[in-house]
Design a protein around this nucleic acid. Structure first.
Lengths: 155, 155
DNA sequence: GCTGAAATTGAAGAAAC
DNA sequence: GTTTCTTCAATTTCAGC
């Protein structure tokens, strides 16, 4: 049920293996990658380029511990938009990505409209984000804040 | 309020710049990095190695679109542990990371105990995760599922 | 600590199979 | 798609500052 599929949207099992390897180590050298999946380095190179072009790989990022960049307080903030402010949702959503504390924006359906993963310098900073940047806009009908103790990546 | 601090836990502004650059592009070559922050490539190398050793950089990962690996259905599942099962929380948490659908586990405080970011093949798969892997354990007193329409990374 | 030069290694493209 | 070859760029080490 939760296994890796054999073939997806034109990607063969080698592509899927490459994606899996790069998800674990985004800096694995092309040579090593080619070796691991059993193809030639040049072929591996063109495959990875293709994976980037089609959008299967959206980018490569360092996983930086927020605590080390002065943002030890993390939270997930569930945000509900006022029913009469739905048309402003687009611009508002854009503005969210501009808040430095925001690490992820999830557009969801459920009892809230957005989930924001934020990393803040301290509790005052977190409160400022919620009261000034969210509630302060007048577009929000409710928020719920989950303080994050720990965040683990999956396999 | 949400600005980058000048100095944090022994990291100077150059370290913070490096972290910022690598967060955006985890594959930026060492030469380019050194150039951008105004230090020699060899110095840059030792700094980045140190950033990894101290844990400021936890790793480098490709950002793979779940839809391309056969998991187009994403959700955030809020999970509440039964009060009388708190001591089993550790082993349960470990088992979560082993579920292939799970991309992130957030340990939180609030009206739930965990938030799970999952990516599933289809709605049946999602239901299986919730009913079999979560509720089915008998450790859970409640879940709430937010279907994710879109996920954007912050700056 | 940082630098600059030297050596090693990897990336990327071309040609032929 | 693979292999080999070739060129160029990046990584890494190290003596010296």
């Amino acid at each position: 049920m939760t296994d890796v599929p054999k073939d997806v949207r034109g990607l063969d099992h080698i592509d899927l293996e490459l994606l899996s390897l790069l998800r674990v180590d985004g800096r694995m050298p092309n040579n090593a990658l080619a070796d691991r999946v059993g193809i030639a380095p040049s072929t591996c190179l063109t495959r990875i380029r293709r994976l980037r072009e089609i959008g299967a790989v959206r980018g490569f990022h360092a996983d930086v511990d927020p605590a080390w960049i002065g943002r030890p307080i993390q939270a997930m903030i569930a945000v509900r938009i006022r029913p009469d402010a739905r048309e402003a949702i687009g611009r508002f959503a854009e503005s969210l990505a501009g808040i430095r504390a925001v690490r992820d924006v999830y557009f969801v359906s459920g009892s809230y409209d957005f989930l924001l993963h934020v990393a803040c310098a301290d509790v005052d900073d977190l409160r400022a984000v919620i009261t000034e940047r969210l509630s302060g806009t007048g577009l929000i009908s409710g928020t719920e804040t989950y303080l994050i103790f720990e965040h683990r990546r999956g396999v």
